[in-house]
Design a protein around this nucleic acid. Structure first.
Lengths: 203, 203
DNA sequence: ATAATAATACCGACCGGTCGGTATTATTAA
DNA sequence: TTAATAATACCGACCGGTCGGTATTATTAT
């Protein structure tokens, strides 16, 4: 990579980083390009040299976040554990996201709100749900095949899991003070998945 | 504010109605007072005669929505049915809200986003969660006492239920096209509650 | 009943300020 | 030198909110 591109890349990264924080903190509308530039210590001209519009910047920030999430999920499924254990790992990941995510998390709220207004955003916002739905449905089906799960319709289970995660996420990012959400989330998920397991342990 | 004038009340109502739609469609920031006034066919002066600020208007719109929800929930619990059946009724209510709520529903997204910025909104936004948590926990405890539920910690179950509802709501309002969310929601909730029931029917 | 008065409801031009975006100029790297 | 990159100055549009003034309605005095 030629060095003159390295400098440009650094500026770009600074913009994206600043934008992440600003979008997360203020939402799409209230986030201002001027503020983002000021915080990134670059000028407005530099910004519009790298990004053609506010919306394009938003999409880039968003895409980065989703890609990172996908990568982490894939890393877990590739460990070759049993299905309930894999879901347990993912519940832990959710907990981590909740704990460290006061900066990143609110972004998804902005994301969802913006998805209702802009078609381009909507497609990026909706695709993950569809993908994760079949993703978890397949996983549950695999659990049934391998004998660790029973008595649950895969599609229904996947939908339940996703809804649960979304609901927990939203509450945690709304409850800016309490920090117990990590444990709450894992408990809820474990309980639901537990009711699908063969040895359905009733206390 | 003396309600001596019926005309005044009509204007007020028109403002609130217009505001509901505008806030739901555009979010808090992008919703504009001028637009709300135009759609309500009144002047900006008239608006500021009735409401002292944009935020106060928002809180009023919001309060109305929450009050309505509370009323409907209370109506169901007062029918004296068993706990699983009552929760089933509430699942149906959720379905109704999803179906008719393309206008009203997005308001709660705006609500939640705004709650992260304004303390006054936050208090109104967070209170319902706390209230419903104890509300459903008590209900589940009642179910255990009356023998229709077992093997579930009331607090955990309440948290699960609420998270599920929130997650389902959010997905349905994101998925502006599909209309199957009503059935999906009731299925998910029934399945989860079913796993708490005594005759835990495994297919 | 009705004229005079007071109170309320409403209007729309206008304010300072901020926005996203652009055109122009300056700086840097090759 | 020259092309890429960054900084500055600026544009028009729109924002929430204010304000002086005007209809409209209610109250009072006669």
């Amino acid at each position: 990579m030629p060095p003159h591109q390295a400098r440009s890349q650094a500026t770009r990264d600074a913009i994206v980083l600043s934008a992440q924080q600003n979008f997360a903190a203020n939402g799409y509308d209230a986030a201002s390009i001027s503020q983002i530039c000021r915080h990134a210590k670059i000028s407005k001209g530099a910004f519009y040299h790298h990004f053609e519009s506010k919306q394009v910047l938003f999409l880039e920030v968003l895409g980065g976040w989703l890609a990172q999430l996908d990568a982490e999920l894939e890393r877990m499924v590739s460990q070759g554990l049993g299905v309930p254990e894999t879901i347990g790992l993912m519940a832990n990941l959710l907990g981590q996201i909740m704990e460290q995510g006061q900066d990143q998390l609110p972004l998804i709220l902005t994301f969802w709100q913006q998805a209702r207004k802009e078609d381009v955003v909507w497609e990026e916002a909706f695709a993950p749900f569809d993908r994760y739905r079949t993703y978890f449905a397949d996983m549950i089906q695999r659990g049934i095949d391998e004998g660790s799960l029973e008595g649950i319709n895969p599609e229904l289970g996947a939908q339940t899991l996703i809804s649960l995660v979304v609901g927990l996420l939203l509450q945690s990012l709304l409850d800016t003070e309490s920090e117990g959400w990590s444990d709450i989330a894992t408990s809820c998920i474990r309980q639901v998945v537990g009711s699908w397991q063969r040895n359905n342990g009733t206390a």
